[in-house]
Design a protein around this nucleic acid. Structure first.
Lengths: 209, 209
DNA sequence: TTCTTCATGTAATTAGTTACATGATTGA
DNA sequence: TCAATCATGTAACTAATTACATGAAGAA
């Protein structure tokens, strides 16, 4: 069965999974995505309006139109076929983590800028980590005290939530360390002495440990 | 000075930074990107053919055409103006890390699949981490013994390299832990008891610590 | 001489983002 | 009754990927 256009991609299945949880209007979906899913599969809001239409075209969801005053409002609901398709997708491997990190790119090229820029860049990274950390704490508390949304999904949410907090922690710890390293640099970063000692414990590891 | 088309974006500056290191042919550039830069700013190879043209159009680089037999070969070199533009870009903030993680997305929806799928999914993540870990060890060793490429840039490469290894480590440790958690799940993941204890240390933290 | 891999690019297509537009609701 | 914000979407545009194409160099 060849599909002319609008084939399903990971973004489609990310949406389909949301519909497995419950029916949503696109607007509610967009809000919810910002909170959880968006941390693992970040996409702009306008995507969330297109994908459900593809799902409907493939018979994986149905759209229920209603009216709010004069305005249309569309609720999307997953179908049996949609649940099967989701199950099939879950059984296939998937790609590893892909990281896009502009702030770190600027550290990568820090030898073509000033020391002050490098110091500021690392501080930005620290700030990012602190911000995510606060968010993570608030969310963790809401689940520990039983007020978090979708408590019936808590078993999986604990796993992914723990990952996201671990990630933020790691970024924060790296930034703390990097700040101490850059502090020791001379004014011209090109003259900095490389801290090869920071690689020594890595170099001593056995591959495949 | 308004630019009709082809304005510069982060990808452009990522390329410009490469040219600051030395002149490259596009092919060499593509190979090199796979190794280092590509871990922080991953883009498909065909992009690497377009961006340098934009840089030339803006006067940030010059293209030197030569011939290899009957085939054209283009070497790109950064200009003075290009070095200034790179410096200006380095002085501006930049975005925090953006993560795209399909394998983890499947864990996020693991309650709509089988326990076996979840176990296999975590194993895939472990494999990814082990693979990156081996790579990181090899690269770290090459710098510790002084054979790594661009030794004059080692001061910054140590910083970004350490980050990438820390990231792979974190992913690996998470996967080891998650494997032990999922092991305890009943056959139907929907009946799994949430391991809220895994959030307790997070919940006890002070925000902004 | 033929095959394979390295080297060099272009074209077509798709995915994704930004900007815009506007009705409904609520509270001052 | 006005302003602000919530809710709902579309259209235009840009970025990025996939697929294709082919010459050069070296190995068998």
């Amino acid at each position: 069965m060849s599909r002319r256009e609008g084939d399903l991609n990971t973004t489609s299945f990310a949406m389909l999974g949301m519909l497995a949880i419950q029916p949503w209007t696109t607007y509610e979906l967009a809000k919810q995505v910002g909170r959880g899913l968006g941390r693992l599969w970040p996409r702009a809001r306008s995507n969330l309006f297109n994908e459900p239409k593809k799902l409907v075209a493939h018979g994986l969801a149905v759209a229920t139109d209603s009216q709010v005053g004069k305005r249309p409002s569309t609720v999307y609901t997953i179908t049996e076929k949609g649940l099967c398709a989701l199950g099939d997708w879950l059984a296939t491997p998937g790609e590893g983590p892909v990281l896009e990190f502009e702030q770190m790119l600027k550290i990568f090229y820090a030898d073509y800028g000033t020391k002050a820029d490098a110091v500021a860049g690392v501080q930005n990274i620290r700030d990012w980590a602190a911000e995510r950390n606060s968010e993570g704490i608030a969310i963790a508390r809401s689940y520990v005290d039983g007020t978090g949304p979708f408590p019936e999904r808590a078993a999986v949410l604990v796993l992914t939530g723990r990952f996201l907090v671990d990630f933020a922690d790691m970024v924060g710890r790296w930034a703390d360390w990097a700040a101490t390293v850059i502090e020791e640099w001379p004014d011209n970063p090109r003259d900095a002495v490389p801290r090869l000692d920071a690689l020594e414990d890595i170099a001593r590891r056995l591959p495949g440990d």
